[in-house]
Design a protein around this nucleic acid. Sequence first.
DNA 1: CGCATACTTAGCCAATCGGCTAATTAGCCA
DNA 2: TGGCTAATTAGCCGATTGGCTAAGTATGCG
Lengths: 120, 120
Amino acid sequence: MDALSLTFAALADPTRRAILARLALGEATVGELAAPFDLRLPTVSKHLKVLQRAGLVSQSRKAQWRPCQLEAAPLKDIAQWAEAFRASWERQFSQLDTYLDELQREPVARATGRGKRHDK
Amino acid sequence: MDALSLTFAALADPTRRAILARLALGEATVGELAAPFDLRLPTVSKHLKVLQRAGLVSQSRKAQWRPCQLEAAPLKDIAQWAEAFRASWERQFSQLDTYLDELQREPVARATGRGKRHDK
DNA sequence: CGCATACTTAGCCAATCGGCTAATTAGCCA
DNA sequence: TGGCTAATTAGCCGATTGGCTAAGTATGCG
């Protein structure tokens, strides 16, 4: 699978996004990451493996602990991918503004499609 | 499922991302969207339904055609979500720069962990 | 050494996914 | 009306996902 798909798939789970948010504050062990969730350790371990496959997390070793670290590079990639659509959403938002402006002037006529802008 | 998860899940497929890229150029019918792919129409129809569930695409009706339109708002949301990690990736990139600078000065010592920066 | 702690691996399960075919719905035109 | 085109719906299939339990691995400590 391509890198972008792996990253998006990894982010399509609230548990995994919460783990990333926690890691943005600094290194944490698997147990520390698991604590906030009502999930067994192996489940969290599996989530971490998904994040590692996407290159979003790396793990080192300190005695019997395996501290995890955020690897933010793929997040930059998806931010850039989404940014390519900026023109689209800005155009749509300005259209929405225009629509709301028209609605302000002639509420019913615009909303129902009956009548015209200047049907004096 | 929450909106962000739905959006990320929808984006975790190259076919669906290609469909969005096409729609960024303007409206298109289902058949037009299917053309570039080696996929049957029902498969593309299914992809479109995933995109609609995520609020990324809307469909209207024109005779027997169902022109699709990009709805970019959710893309803005994920761009914003990712942007929250900007500090993380910028810090990591600058660390990489620093590492490469040190490597430039003392290649072997830094790379193997033996020796020190100023082991005079 | 023996045992506790921290975590991973293996494997089960139900649910979802991404592809397909076949059948159905919707609208146009002769 | 009947038929053509566009697209959806229904349903099958094998693969993946997200949860679990039970068992295995790795490290530190008395």
